[in-house]
């Protein structure tokens, strides 16, 4: 546990010097999407006969979706290039394992740091959507951990993937997984609008469950068994990802 904290300390030290870029990436992008899509396109949507759940405005529908998506994007980004860089290019992990730090300190440390970063993103963006008057109940407080959990469900498996890569192969990950998830997992429109077979595919994506959970908590539309399924899905993915990361780190560093 102490070891994992050391890893968080190390990352915080680096972050102190490089936070500006990631601030733009983490808060500005979802905010810009909120204004452009929520307000700009939102006006066009409200004119039509929109069939949004619980009869909410498009802006209110979109905002929690963007919160979950922002955590997905930050988590994916921070778990791909930086991790493979520390594994391969900078050999940071190799250097750290020469100390009493253990593999699981590295993995849990990275995830703990990710949780810290995701919390800042989630809290900031929740504040922003509160300014837009989106939340319907105090339950929105719980949307923050739900969004962080969504991020971790991406982070853990991607860390495992990144740890096995010798060179960066993440363009494909972002272009063919993260971007389509962003666009088709219920952030911008209910997945019921997708053609039948794609609805099923969308239902099985992690972002869909993250979006449903965060949206339910923000708009107070959560239903009893459904939220458990969403949360259980995300927790399972995180746990599987952690297992895979431990395996991948051991294979690379103890080979």
């Amino acid at each position: 546990m102490i070891g994992a904290i050391r890893m968080v300390q190390r990352n915080a030290l680096v972050y102190r010097r490089a936070w500006r870029g990631s601030v733009f990436f983490s808060f500005l992008q979802p905010t810009l999407f909120l204004i452009a899509m929520g307000v700009g396109v939102g006006r066009l949507v409200n004119r039509g006969d929109a069939s949004l759940p619980a009869g909410v405005d498009f802006l209110d529908f979109l905002a929690p979706g963007l919160l979950a998506a922002a955590c997905m994007q930050t988590a994916s980004f921070e778990s791909s290039w930086p991790i493979s860089g520390k594994m391969t290019w900078q050999r940071t992990y190799e250097a750290i394992t020469a100390t009493p730090m253990r593999i699981r300190d590295l993995v849990f440390g990275e995830l703990a740091w990710m949780a810290v970063r995701l919390s800042t993103v989630a809290i900031a963006f929740t504040a922003i959507i509160t300014l837009f008057g989106v939340p319907r109940s105090p339950l929105v407080i719980l949307a923050v951990p739900a969004a962080v959990l969504t991020g971790l469900a991406f982070s853990a498996p991607i860390i495992a993937y990144a740890a096995t890569r010798k060179r960066d192969h993440f363009n494909g990950l972002f272009r063919f997984i993260i971007t389509p998830l962003f666009l088709f997992s219920g952030v911008f429109f209910p997945i019921a609008r997708l053609p039948e077979p794609l609805q099923t595919v969308a239902w099985f994506t992690p972002l869909f469950h993250g979006v449903e959970l965060v949206r339910g908590l923000t708009l107070n539309t959560l239903e009893s068994p459904a939220w458990l399924i969403h949360a259980a899905y995300l927790v399972s993915l995180t746990v599987i990802g952690i297992g895979a990361s431990l395996w991948a780190f051991r294979r690379r560093l103890h080979a």
């Binding site: 396109v41 066009l44 666009l183």
Partner: peptide, 13 residues
Amino acid sequence: LLGIGFGLGGMVG
């Protein structure tokens, strides 16, 4: 195009 133009666009008119 598919996500915004068609998916979201379906709600737009």
